[in-house]
Nucleic acid binder design. Structure first.
Length: 312
DNA sequence: ATAATTTGACCACT
DNA sequence: AGTGGTCAAATTAT
């Protein structure tokens, strides 16, 4: 069959990379299938709990991410190329669109990406972001800032985030991450959110039974950010009838609960508080692929019952 | 000189 | 029509 090297040479490097990603993902899926057929993958509980399976799922989903990112950037490049060939200037990849305001804003909004909301005392999360907008938000004291990954045009990384200072805590920022980082930016520091206790999944409640929660580090993560998260909530954006102010109230309540319940393990510098609350939003159901913050999708099964027959 | 931010306009959604 | 997300020229920072 068609191996990667046998593809027509007109394929760009990015297209080849997309194919390679898909092939890798297929390989991981095959391995996963083998594991599923192997009874030793199941514990006495009958649940899948092998870390290997989690790892494979992670890899598979990441493969999709990478492929999508690569393909998206290829598309952009092709468009700009064809436009250059025809007559117009290229706006993507080149500098700026010179005063052709008529065609301005031919962009799509809101891809079907996942979003997470993190409440933190800092806007820093270890990734390199580029601010591209700011907006006054109705009924909000502070404006909302919009950031995209600095690798957007480099590597087609589609990750964005929105940061807004919270009304009450004044020191706290609500950060909504949209989309996964697909860039290979190895200079980034520790991610902002690490789930250390699987028991808190699904219940959306805080569970800091162990006040000496070790600052879990990523495989090769640094310690200067020392992120500690205590709660993650999953929700569906479409089914959230609450107004922005309601959300804020909810968060401040959560924040109060958390503060009152023992965040003293925080060893941050003065004024620095770790992330205390994160909510996970899916714009499309049935996909627990986000692993950027160390989230372990498999552990949703405690309450969410991941079904492996993907309806839809 | 280049990169990042600011800011008003444009546009998608509801 | 109102609100919020994105674009891109102008401005500021490095």
């Amino acid at each position: 069959m068609a191996s990667v090297s046998a593809w027509p040479e007109r394929l760009s490097g990015k297209q080849k990379r997309a194919i390679e990603e898909l092939v890798a993902g297929q390989e991981y899926a095959n391995q996963l299938q083998i594991l599923f057929c192997n009874p030793s993958s199941f514990q006495e509980t009958g649940r899948l709990s092998s870390p290997k399976i989690e790892e494979l799922i992670h890899k598979i989903l990441r493969s999709f991410d990478q492929t999508l990112a690569v393909l998206s950037s290829v598309e952009s490049a092709e468009v700009s190329q064809s436009q250059t060939a025809s007559n117009e200037d290229s706006s993507i990849g080149g500098r700026r669109r010179p005063a052709s305001k008529e065609k301005r804003g031919c962009y799509k909004r809101k891809r079907t990406a996942q979003a997470w909301t993190v409440v933190s005392a800092t806007m820093e999360d270890g990734h390199a972001w580029r601010k591209y907008g700011q907006k006054e938000i109705l009924n909000s004291e502070h404006p909302r800032s919009y950031f995209r990954c600095t690798r957007k045009y480099d590597q087609g990384c589609l990750a964005t985030k929105q940061v807004q200072r919270m009304e009450v805590g004044s020191q706290m920022y609500r950060t909504t991450y949209i989309g996964t980082h697909t860039c290979t930016n190895h200079s980034f520091k520790a991610p902002p959110l690490i789930i250390t206790d699987s028991e808190c999944w699904g219940t959306a409640t805080v569970n800091i039974s162990d006040s000496s929660i070790p600052i879990k580090q990523h495989h090769d993560g640094q310690s200067d950010l020392s992120p500690t998260s205590v709660a993650v909530k999953q929700e569906t954006k479409e089914e959230t009838p609450t107004t922005p102010s309601d959300l804020t109230d909810l968060d401040s309540v959560m924040w109060k609960d958390l503060m009152g319940d023992g965040l003293e393990y925080c060893s941050e510098p003065a004024g620095m508080v770790p992330n205390v609350y994160a909510s996970c939003t899916e714009m499309r159901s049935g996909n627990f692929e986000e692993l950027e913050f160390g989230i372990k999708p498999m552990e949703f099964e405690n309450d969410f019952e991941i079904e492996f027959d993907d309806s839809e």
